[in-house]
Simulated assay, not measured.
Amino acid sequence: MTETMTPSTDETTDEAFVPPTRFAVPGRIAVSTGTATTWQTATLTEIRRETPDAATFRFAVPAWEGHLPGHHLMLRLTAGDGYVAQRHYSIASAPDDSGHIELTLDHVDGGEVSGWFHTVARPGDSVEVRGPLSGFFAWPGDRPALLVGAGSGVVPLMSMLRHHRARGLDVPLRLLVSARSPEELIYAGEYGDETTAVFTRVAPDGVPVGRMATAHVAPLLAEQPPGGWEAYICGSNGFAEHASRLLVQAGQPVDRIRIERFG
């Protein structure tokens, strides 16, 4: 089982520069990461409320050379007194959104960067970004994808889903997403038949409440597509452990599970 730490929380850690490379899948997508070491100016153009605690922030980044679904970036905020804060964030938008990227951020209690975005930021404000980073969790659209996320862990998975739709890919894709309630389900209006939502505290009438369970996972593993699933899990430490255990118990090969964790 391969894994990394997720970029979608308020963190202060930096990561090593990524050398120039090129990801390519014939008929799918090709992305240069030659600018991954360069800071670029990103201008905020739009803010969309997703849930009471999460919002999507759309940026114009003219020199952005693209990304793969599942990539993340480093964002740098500089205060008037020179104080600098850097955070890793997953990219929510599909790669075909030329010259623009979108980030969906939770309002983290005490988070200085997420707090600024949710209480201060307005269209026209600028930040700096560097990326794309970390090809480990990337999905170029070349293999069946089983996506499993909880809370804001759905952000990089939504980039994959949007890419799948934008390109009209016929490769199988399924999404299992967990939220505490329908009100807290990020991107609720975008899901279709490929998605199963699980609610842990409050659910719509007729939908059981509870954690993601074997009953949610087993049917997907039973309908293995040719070549089998490549599984992508994103969420908190506890959720990642729980979800990966469910997948393995249902028959998913350990070496075909990719994990990003909050923390």
Rank of each mutant, 00 (worst) to 15 (best):
H216Y: 07
F137P: 01
A79R: 06
Y191E: 11
V127T: 08
E102S: 14
A150S: 15
W139K: 01
T51Q: 09
L185C: 08
L247V: 11
M1W: 04
G110E: 12
V84M: 07
E65S: 06
T51W: 12
L133S: 00
R143D: 04
C234E: 03
Y89E: 01
A215M: 00
D255E: 10
H118Q: 11
L73M: 03
V207A: 13
A203G: 12
A16Q: 03
P208R: 12
A250N: 08
L176V: 08
T38P: 00
G124F: 15
V171I: 05
G228P: 02
M158C: 08
G168K: 14
L161Q: 14
D205Q: 12
I29W: 04
V202P: 01
R28S: 10
M1F: 02
G141A: 10
S126Q: 14
E230A: 10
P172Y: 09
P156M: 02
Y187S: 08
P225G: 02
V154M: 08
P95M: 05
E112G: 01
E15C: 06
R48K: 15
E102R: 14
V113H: 09
H242F: 09
I257H: 10
S32H: 05
P156H: 03
R261H: 12
V155R: 14
F23H: 03
R167H: 15
W64Q: 06
A79T: 08
V18N: 02
T195F: 04
A203C: 11
E46P: 02
E241F: 00
R261K: 11
A138T: 01
H107M: 14
C234Q: 03
L173Y: 05
M1K: 13
L169Y: 12
R201D: 11
C234L: 09
D125P: 15
R258N: 04
R256S: 07
E184H: 14
A243D: 06
G151C: 11
R48H: 14
A24V: 07
A231V: 01
E46D: 03
L103V: 02
T200A: 14
A54E: 15
E65H: 09
H242A: 03
Q86A: 01
F262L: 05
G66C: 07
R122M: 11
E183T: 10
L44D: 14
P62S: 05
A63N: 10
S159A: 15
D53F: 12
W64F: 05
P52C: 13
R28G: 04
R130V: 02
R28F: 06
T56F: 03
A42L: 04
T4L: 06
V31H: 01
V254K: 15
E241D: 15
W116V: 06
Q40H: 09
M1P: 04
R122C: 08
H88P: 01
Q252S: 13
A94Y: 13
H107F: 13
E50D: 09
R211A: 04
M5V: 12
G227F: 09
R162F: 14
V171N: 07
A218R: 06
M74F: 05
G110K: 00
G135T: 01
A203Y: 09
G115M: 10
G124D: 13
P156G: 03
V154W: 02
Y191V: 10
A197C: 13
P7Q: 03
P26S: 13
E50W: 11
T51E: 12
D125N: 15
V207I: 15
G110T: 12
